[in-house]
Each structure stands twice: as structure tokens, then as C-alpha cells.
Simulated assay, not measured.
Amino acid sequence: MFVGHALFAFALGALAARWLGLSRERAVQLGVVAGLFAAAPDADIVYAPFGLLVGAAENLTADGFWETANVVHRGPTHSLVLGTALAVAAGLWSTESQPARIASLAIGVALVAVTGVLSGPVAALVTVVFVAAALAIATFAVSRDISPRTVAALALLGLLTHPFGDLFTGGPPPFLYPFDVTLVAERVLLHPDPTTHLLAAFAIELATVWLAVWTYVHLRGYTLTELVRPRAALGIGYAAAVLFLPAPTLERSAHFVFSVLALGVIGAPVRPFSHGVDWLETVVTGLAAVTIAALAYAMAYGAI
């Protein structure tokens, strides 16, 4: 859900800005900032490369990467409590006044200290990266003349929507960390069959991407139908993969995810280095091909 978190926040932020009467260009800018904030909680995967370096060579696979990353992934950085505090810190940081920035840094230091005491040095280090990422995004927002209140609102949108997107694909994050209160105890099960559950979660991810793409296309004055080329229908051939690939599950999904996403190349222009290439058309056609491929696989598997 890496991409999904950011794109969902982008769509919500941009559409809300447009609904409030801002220009199309400004709405896109605010959506981008919201999306960046939504990606910040996944700064916790910085642990994975270091964990792999000290781990066994056999872990150097996609699944091994995630097994290592999950040591700290969906931990403190996915807390609604920490997210709210960090959104306040981002708003204070964007005021550019010295007292406000000192207060912002104090909040960041407090978050790191609490995490370190409760969860150890690795979690504290991850929180340092999390705080730094949020303040860097706030700095970027300031460079785009976004007001402190708007920065704080966009940070809240991004940081607080992110954890809920993980309910379908992993263990529920500690929503109320550092408090020992469980808001959601188990993963939301979309289907008892592991493969059908994965396909349903993938469908949610695709729907999120489509929402973001539609938002951008709409704000740029286009329509989706004029950007999809007929060759996207070639994705239907992916149905044959059900005969050759092991049935994917959340625990073993890399072969499915990477192979179906690879079909996005269908959207690539025949002459990519020529002048006049419509990259928006390329993205939309590629996404349509991936969507058709996923639907074809689901039908062949019997999930639909």
C-alpha cells in the first residue's frame, strides 16, 4: 500500500481544496503535499536494508525484505497519537518563527524519547527519520507558500489516513501508541480464502490509484476515456498466469504483484524517445492494462 497511502491522501486533499474553491493548480499542489505526508509513516522501512545487511544472504529476496522490515514496520510511526502530535509540529515548523520552530523540535524530540523508552533504540531511530521526513515536507510546503494551518491540516490528513490503509494487508498498527489500548485487534478479512483476500486487497489498491489518477486528470481538464488506448485490452492475457504461477497470498505475493504490474508496460509508447509523447496517456493506458489483467486473473482463479 505504499503508493496507495500517498495517492489516497493526494486525491482527498486535492478534491477538498477544489471543493473549497481553490484553483485547479493549487488543488494539485495541496494534494501532493498531503500525499507526501501520507507516505511519511512508511519511513520505518529504513530498518530493512540494515537488517538485511546483518542478516543471512538467503533473506535477500522480496519476501525476505518484508520479513525484515516488519520487525518495526507498522509500529510507532503508524500511531494516530504520534501522527497528530507530528502534524502539530509540522504546522509549527512551517511558521518559520524561531519560538515556533523550537516548539516543533521539542515535540519531535519528545516523540523520539517516548518511543525509545517504550520500544527501544531501533524504534527511536525510526522515529527520528519519521520526524525528519515530516519536517522536510513542511519545509517543502513553505516553499510553495502554503500557510501553517494548511500544512497542519494536510499533515493530519496524510498521517492519520495512512494507518487505516494497512488493515487489509498486514497486522493492525498500534493506533493509540504509546497507550496500551487496542483499537483494532485483527486484520480485516475480505475473504476466508487467502488468495481471494489478496486479490480483493489488490482491487482496493487499484481503486485507490484510479481515484488519484481520475482526480489529477479531472483537475487538468481531461477525461479518462480519451486517455485509454485499445491496447490496454491485451492485459486479458494474464488470465493464463493462473496455470503457471503459484496461487499468491499476502505472505507470498511478490511473484503475482510484480508480474501483473509489469503489464503496465503495455501503456508505453512505441517510440518513447520521440517528440510529442503523451505520458498521461501512457500512465492511464498502463493502469487500465494492469486492471484488466488483475480482473482476468481473478476470473480465471474463480474469485469472481
Rank of each mutant, 00 (worst) to 15 (best):
T215C: 09
V260P: 00
L22G: 00
L211V: 10
L30A: 05
T223Y: 01
F164H: 12
P163T: 10
E58G: 06
H5F: 12
L206R: 02
E226L: 02
A241T: 13
G264V: 10
P174K: 08
L7S: 12
T291C: 04
L227V: 11
V71F: 14
P99I: 06
P269A: 15
W214N: 01
V270E: 03
T127R: 00
G158L: 09
V81N: 00
A11P: 04
V283A: 14
L154M: 14
A132G: 10
S274E: 13
V81K: 05
L263W: 14
L287T: 12
G108T: 11
T182R: 13
G286K: 12
L211R: 04
M1C: 12
D180M: 01
P163C: 03
A69D: 01
L190E: 11
L263H: 12
R144E: 14
L82M: 05
T84F: 15
A16H: 04
G221V: 06
A240S: 12
T249H: 02
A247N: 03
R18G: 02
L167A: 08
Y297W: 09
A62L: 15
A90I: 11
G267C: 09
G286R: 07
V151D: 05
P272L: 07
L176P: 02
P194F: 14
Y301N: 02
R229N: 04
A262S: 15
A185P: 05
P230E: 06
V33E: 03
L211M: 11
T195V: 09
A48K: 10
I292K: 05
R144Y: 09
L125S: 13
P172H: 03
V126E: 09
E58Y: 08
A185C: 02
A153G: 13
L157K: 10
G75P: 00
P121F: 06
A241I: 03
T249M: 06
W214F: 15
S94I: 08
G64W: 08
V28F: 04
P178K: 07
I102R: 14
A262N: 03
T196A: 14
A69I: 13
V290R: 03
I146S: 03
I146W: 07
G264S: 13
H218Y: 14
V284G: 02
A27E: 06
Y47V: 13
S147R: 11
T139D: 10
A85D: 01
E205A: 15
D63R: 15
A138L: 07
V242R: 06
F258T: 11
A69P: 03
A9K: 07
I102V: 15
V184T: 04
P172G: 02
T249C: 09
R26K: 12
L280T: 13
G276S: 05
G35F: 08
I45N: 00
F10C: 11
V81W: 07
L234P: 00
V188M: 10
L245S: 01
G51E: 06
R26S: 04
Y47T: 05
P269D: 03
A240C: 03
G237N: 08
H162E: 10
E281Y: 04
G235W: 02
L234M: 14
L80W: 14
G221Y: 07
A141L: 10
M1Y: 09
L52F: 00
L135Q: 07
F50N: 00
S274V: 05
P148C: 06
F202Q: 09
G51H: 01
E58S: 14
L80D: 00
L227R: 12
P172I: 10
T61A: 08
E58A: 12
L160I: 11
